[in-house]
Design a protein around this nucleic acid. Sequence first.
DNA 1: CGGACGGTTGACACTAGTCAAATTGAGTGG
DNA 2: CCACTCAATTTGACTAGTGTCAACCGTCCG
Lengths: 240, 240
Amino acid sequence: MSKLSVLPKADLLPILSRAALFRDFSPGELIEVLEAGQPRCIEESSFFFQQGDPASRLYVLTDGRVRLSQVTVDGQQVILRVIVPGQMFGAIGLTQPEALYPVSAEASEDSQALAWETGVFRRLCENRPGVSFDLMGMMTSYIQEMQDRYRELATERTEQRVARALLRLAAQLGRKVEEGVLVDMALSRQSLAEMTGTTLYTVSRLFSKWERRGVIQTGRERVVIVKPHDLVQIVEGLAE
Amino acid sequence: MSKLSVLPKADLLPILSRAALFRDFSPGELIEVLEAGQPRCIEESSFFFQQGDPASRLYVLTDGRVRLSQVTVDGQQVILRVIVPGQMFGAIGLTQPEALYPVSAEASEDSQALAWETGVFRRLCENRPGVSFDLMGMMTSYIQEMQDRYRELATERTEQRVARALLRLAAQLGRKVEEGVLVDMALSRQSLAEMTGTTLYTVSRLFSKWERRGVIQTGRERVVIVKPHDLVQIVEGLAE
DNA sequence: CGGACGGTTGACACTAGTCAAATTGAGTGG
DNA sequence: CCACTCAATTTGACTAGTGTCAACCGTCCG
């Protein structure tokens, strides 16, 4: 089912213009940026880059879904972030040219991105002082999110964290369907466990419980949130 | 014991010049920056700002120790970071002028800082394109640290996380003493628990065990690391 | 058709949290 | 200087919440 037909550059323009980073670029500048980038196509479960590779490029996803994850020394995965089209990732080399990627970027379905050599991108930014400010703003937001999630991981029960993860995913890539809101990506129990610091068994048990109550509907790598409000209650610890 | 005598501005210069942010400022520029800032003195267990305050200033600590922490809805504290002299904190308002501080900054001993109105600081930076780049670099490093710590919290046992926290603190504010390396701040079991997502009871039990083995020496709000290598082994899960 | 993979469920173990009670130690004021 | 107070700490007893492991099922896909 490999739908790996490369998108023509013309189709990338509207995606780039949706990216927060380029919001105050003129159409002409956007085209300049676009031309400086290299399109990359990656099929499901391949990598744009892996933890430990030299951080020579930065990416903006144009199609698909990408998981940013770390592996521990004993092989456990931890998913730090899910990237959707329009979002940047792998920007570490921008400020630290000698760095290695501290995470892996794995396509969870066939995906496409634009890639820029960090040096090239740095030069593109230098002419536009607003861009580094926008970049800082994006980093600041991400820092806040990580701090919130750190606090949650440090203080909340597994059930609350999994419920939260579902709500976050729904906000980021929810799609309205008849039964409720579908989390629009392949999402196994294992993946969700790796996002929340638990095991696939615990996620499976929680899903069973919630499904019995009609809060969600699940299938193979598929979750539909039927009653978001009930998930919010679980997050707030008011469950049962 | 309040040693809250305000440091003269002259004494602040070498501290500022140590700050990573100002590393390529000329002495003249440093003085300009210094003059634009307001000195702030805070006594132990008071706050430079609290979670929820308008993020109108950013700070560089010039003396003392500051804990950045969040509280959960049910009142639990989570310590995200310890600030030592030369480090910046509270910079969120720089890119998001309308934001509220997402953390509280509490002095864990009598402390002093320089504060700048975010607008003033922004103007100082605009003349120096390198500064926003350095800021981005600092943010990138912090993001990496948070990601690492998130992974640790998600995958490691309490014992490993506490050992890691001690090693991190030793790296940041260790001071050589006869018995080993002293963590140079008031550090209660409770604080360490709030840094590692556990309880003061568990930290106390770990300390007892480690002290019996001669790995550390502890006192009231005081920890000396006697055998750092043993802590490293605990972190790596090779203990017992 | 068969294998691989995702998922479910039960039995069990164990880490680490909770609560209670006692102890230590530092700082304070008479 | 000593008694007093309060916070920090220690330790034991108990247990809830989750992880671990094993067995099994269903389904997708080659």
